[in-house]
């Protein structure tokens, strides 16, 4: 029994039973298939996270974001005072996570690629675009750079999905895709 020492002291000489051998073969094959899927998707898939990232101080990053907002601001969102920014297709976009907002609001074109820069100036934040459901982790001191192409138009929420204190549930940004 499993709670007593093996009855056969030379248990490693016992043959492997056929069901087990069969299952071991199947499971190993499935393991290899699952492993191969990841590099396969890097080559043929269109949803792969870039690995480009830079170390940057929060102040330096904030300056970049402010310059970006200044350059492409088109209006303010209702009476919230939050700038709405419309960069041209292919442009670099600088988005900032801080307690408790995703700044600024973006207006993008469907089917056009943009170069997103993401960072935080205080704590860890989550960058979760809904309802398309893309979820990224944003760290202070790290500038993450990735190419993103919206494939549908509409109004998208940017939910912070990393706990960042008592106002976490109010940390919500917006992206318009036209």
């Amino acid at each position: 029994m499993a709670i007593t020492p093996p009855a056969n002291r030379l248990w490693w000489n016992e043959p492997v039973e056929r069901t087990e051998a069969l299952w071991i073969g199947i499971a190993l094959l499935w393991a290899v298939i699952m492993f191969v899927m990841m590099p396969y998707w890097h080559i043929y898939g269109q949803q792969n996270l870039s690995t480009e990232a830079y170390k940057i101080s929060p102040d330096a990053y904030t300056e970049k974001v402010e310059a970006f907002v200044e350059k492409y601001k088109i209006r303010e969102e209702g009476d919230t005072g939050i700038p709405v920014v419309k960069p041209p297709a292919g442009a670099d976009i600088y988005m900032l996570g801080r307690l408790w907002e995703w700044y600024p609001i973006l207006e993008l074109e469907k089917g056009k690629q943009y170069r997103f820069h993401l960072s935080s100036v205080d704590w860890l934040h989550g960058f979760s675009i809904q309802p398309t459901n893309i979820n990224l982790q944003v760290h202070p001191g790290y500038e993450m750079v990735l190419n993103m192409t919206p494939t549908e138009s509409g109004e998208f929420g940017v939910v912070c999905n990393e706990f960042c204190g008592i106002g976490h549930h109010t940390m919500l940004g917006k992206i318009y895709v036209k």
Binding site: I82, N133, C160, N161, H168, H169, L172
Partner: peptide, 19 residues
């Protein structure tokens, strides 16, 4: 469906923006 973990209010009632 995208609902966040560790989140107090999935209606975002207190947020300046809405989703």
């Amino acid at each position: 469906l995208g609902v966040s973990r560790r989140h107090w209010d999935m209606t975002f009632a207190d947020a300046p923006l809405s989703y």
